[in-house]
């Protein structure tokens, strides 16, 4: 299964944008756990990583669509489609994101 390995550990509440081939991924650390979702807003194709994260919710910086980064669920705003969510595991100080390839 295709995967992305990240050796950088995040601080609590931190999020980073990852790009591998054409895939944009947003990686966040919340409550000690890592979560990965698509970094592209389902409304206007903007990078969500430029938006602000509060709790488990990220707000798209352009029009304010909101997504739960633990599930990819769309919470409101002009968007109505969820974004992809990827499973994340931890291994020897490395974060492994299982992508769809």
């Amino acid at each position: 299964m295709p995967e992305i390995r990240v050796s950088q550990l995040l601080k609590e509440g931190e999020s980073i944008a990852l790009k591998e081939d054409d895939q944009h991924i947003l990686l966040c650390r919340i409550g000690g756990k890592y979560h990965a979702v698509s970094n592209i807003c389902s409304h206007a194709r903007v990078l969500l990583s430029k938006g602000r994260l509060r709790g488990t919710t990220i707000t798209c910086p352009l029009h304010g669509a909101r997504f739960d980064v633990t599930s990819g669920k769309c919470l409101g705003g002009p968007a109505f489609q969820d974004i992809a969510s990827y499973s994340v595991s931890n291994e020897d100080n490395e974060i492994i994101i299982a992508t769809e390839g």
Partner: peptide, 14 residues
């Protein structure tokens, strides 16, 4: 804004 809450630095008119 077409959303009910959130956190944004700027608001862009759709």
């Amino acid at each position: 804004l077409l959303t009910n809450q959130g956190a944004m630095e700027t608001y862009t008119c759709p």
